[in-house]
Amino acid sequence: MNITRSWREQKVMLKQRFSILSDADFAFEEEEQEDMLNQLAGKLKKTRAELKLIFAELQTY
Rank of each mutant, 00 (worst) to 15 (best):
T4W: 01
A24T: 12
E29P: 00
I3Y: 07
E30W: 03
L51A: 10
L51Y: 06
K46S: 03
D35P: 00
L58N: 08
I54A: 08
E9L: 03
F18R: 00
F18H: 11
E9P: 01
M1A: 15
F28R: 04
E31W: 09
A56W: 08
L58M: 14
D23V: 05
K52A: 15
Q16H: 10
M13F: 08
E30K: 13
L51G: 02
F55E: 07
R8W: 01
M36L: 07
E57W: 07
S22W: 00
E34A: 12
E34Q: 09
F18D: 01
L40K: 00
Q39E: 13
E32P: 00
K45E: 15
K43I: 13
K45H: 15
L14K: 01
M36E: 04
R8D: 13
K43T: 04
K46C: 05
T47W: 04
Q16S: 13
Q10I: 12
L37V: 05
I20Y: 00
Q39L: 11
K15V: 02
E9I: 01
L51H: 05
K52V: 06
Q59G: 08
Q16R: 14
N38H: 09
A41G: 11
V12R: 15
L53I: 06
F28V: 04
R5M: 06
L14F: 12
Q16C: 07
Y61F: 12
W7N: 15
Q33I: 09
F26Q: 02
L14Y: 09
N38A: 12
F55K: 09
Q16M: 09
Q16A: 14
L14N: 03
L44Q: 02
I54Q: 11
D23I: 06
T47K: 10
L44D: 01
E31I: 05
T4E: 07
S6I: 02
D23G: 07
D23W: 03
V12K: 15
S19N: 03
F28Q: 02
